[in-house]
Structures are given as C-alpha cells and as structure tokens.
Design a binder for these strands. Sequence first.
DNA 1: CAAAGGTAGTTGCACACGCAACTACATTAG
DNA 2: CTAATGTAGTTGCGTGTGCAACTACCTTTG
Lengths: 192, 192
Amino acid sequence: MPELADITNPDVDATADAAAPADGTGLGAFEALLHDERLTAAGLLFEVAAGLEAALGSQIDGHGLALSEFEVLLRLVRSPGGQLRMSDLARQVNLSSSGLTRLADRLEARGLLERRACPTDGRGSNALVTAEGRTVMAAVLPGHVALVERWLTSALEPAQLQALTGALRAVRAGVRPDAEAGARTGVAPGPA
Amino acid sequence: MPELADITNPDVDATADAAAPADGTGLGAFEALLHDERLTAAGLLFEVAAGLEAALGSQIDGHGLALSEFEVLLRLVRSPGGQLRMSDLARQVNLSSSGLTRLADRLEARGLLERRACPTDGRGSNALVTAEGRTVMAAVLPGHVALVERWLTSALEPAQLQALTGALRAVRAGVRPDAEAGARTGVAPGPA
DNA sequence: CAAAGGTAGTTGCACACGCAACTACATTAG
DNA sequence: CTAATGTAGTTGCGTGTGCAACTACCTTTG
C-alpha cells in the first residue's frame, strides 16, 4: 500500500481514500467532516450550476432544444467555419462518443446539423451547423444571454464577477486542463 | 405582446425572448453575442461544475455509489435525526419525485436507507439513513473531502475562495431562493 | 359532516446517456 | 509492403431520470 504522500498523485482518485481511517478515529471526526467548509463550498458550486441550468433551461427548450443540443450548436457556431470534429465536440460538451453520435443524429434529422467526411482523416466526420441551425441559434441566443444577465451577471458587482471568473478559471486549470488555452481552431490544423 | 420592460418578470422565462429581434438587427449583433463575456462566464461555471463532478465521481463510485446516491445520503447524514421528508430531499438534490422514489428504492434494497411513515402526515415517508448507511458515508467522506481540497479549495488563495463562495451565494439567492436561510430542520416542526 | 381541491408518493412509459463490442481507417514496426 | 497497434465513429444493451397518470391522504369550503 502506498503511503499518504501518494495522495498528491492525480491519476488515481482512489488514493484519496488512503487518508481515510474508515474507523478507529471515531465519530467525532466524521461529524466534523459533515460541516466542513470545503464540503459546503463544493456543494454550493453544484447547487448554483444546477439552479442556473434550470433557470436557463426552459427558455432553451421553449425553442425545441435540449440543453445539451444547445451546447453543441453553440460550440459549432462559435467555431471558425462552423464545424468541429466529432470527438473534439464530444469532449467539449462532456459527452461520450456514443452520446454525441445520437445527439448529432437528432440534430441532423431536424436539419440543424450536417456531417462532412473529414478530408484529411478518412475515419472522421466533422459536424457542421447548417444555415437553419444558425437561424435557430440566432433566435435563441439573445433571450439566453438576457437570462444569463438576469440570473448571473447582474446578481454580482463587477468586481465580484471578475473574482468569480478568476477563481473558476483557476479551478478549471486543474480539473479540465485541456480546456485551457487556445480553444483549438475549428477543424484540423490542415489547409482551410 | 408585452413590452421589453416585461423582461424583469422572473416568472415567465420566455419573456426573455421579447428582447430577441430574431432578424432585422442583422448578423453583426449575432456574431457579437457569440463572444459575449456573459456567455463565457456562464459556460465557465458549467465547465467547472462538470469537471469537478468528474474529478470527484470516480472516488465515490469506487465505493459503489452513484453521485446522486451520495448526495442523498449526504443530505441525510447532515440532517438532525438522519431523516428527511422525501419531497424535501427531492428538491434538495434536484431530482423529481419519481426519480427520488427509484433512488430510494435502490438504497433501501442495499440496506443504506429506510422509509418511515411520517407520524404527522399520513401521506408521507421520511427517508432515514441506516447505521450501515452511516458506515458507508464514514468510509467515503474523508477521501471525498480530500479530493475537494485537492481540486477546489487548494487551487485558490483563501481570499479567492472567500470571493468565490460569496459570489456563488449571491447567485444562488436569485436562482434557488428556497435554499437560502435556515436549512430546514430535519423533519417536520413537530415533537422530536 | 360532505364535497372539492390540493399535496405526497408510487408506477407506466419514453428517452437520453454511458459502456462495451465492433468496423473502418490510420500509424508505426518489422 | 505487411502486420500489429492505436484511434474515430457507430450500434446493442442496460439503466437512471422526467413526465403524466393514478392512489391515498390532507385541507378547505359549503
């Protein structure tokens, strides 16, 4: 068994349990953990994310889109050329490959998305927003941003908002290192 | 049709779309929205929540629990008497009634939870953590808190963490007003 | 007290998603 | 060039969850 120092290894989550006596230390320590401020902070983050998601959700599916579908289209319209590799897209929206396959199927059936064979890699498809997809997004986005404004940004002083995004970026750097910098140009680094 | 001023009405999400020209204003405005900093802030929040969830998830289901099951048990062990009304519990963990019914079924089948008929209201059950449920949580929590420490709190300066929780609380006040104050005592306000 | 309406919780159904297995292509080793 | 290994994307299958309908109970109104 590794020593406690191994807790710093980010690869194996289970090593965190090395710090857990699981007994012996008694119930006092357990009771203390229940009201640990770190636990509270994490819970707060999840609560707010879920709450904001709910606050934004109804407007989006008022336009006939699920939240994950909206996120996919959003990533696409934000990408140069309006296209992205399926696998990149899947990572960006936190979906498995198969999940994105199905989702893309639905959007394609509705004419909001097309699949293009990737010219440089015979295996792959690029997902591409159609003109109709853009139209839908153009209809959804203004209201969406208005709701973000109402529930998120306008609830905070400018300095608070700045602090929030700064802190979130710092956390993301650890938890999602690939989302970091250059936001990956549209498709492959090949010729446009 | 209501005027733009109606956008301040929080009851009807669709009113946010009143601000959406959907055409006429042209594509420049649309393009601008795509890189709106408010949109980025919201996306950041969701990304971090999802990332942290993933970072914490594997340790939890290393103990045979799904994340939502963990959250339910956590709410219960934090409640006085270790019990909570089903409907309250459902709201707290952002689950529908039916979702919680099924989840409670699973936990009950594993002996981590019991249902008690509510003495003051013949319709209702209280969910109650069993001793075994507490044992499981005692085994999971230390490692869980260690991971929260590693990925969330230790990634931030103390002042940053303070600012983060402050901002999150401000947002939650709007988006989840019921979660606000007194955290609702265990069961009903009746005699213990 | 009786009737009407509201609330708590459970079940039928549909569906989105993850995992594992598979195909097709790419890449590297020999 | 051929073989072995790795990667992109799709499908079969199981499962967790929301919605709508239903039952049982509470609450309010006449």
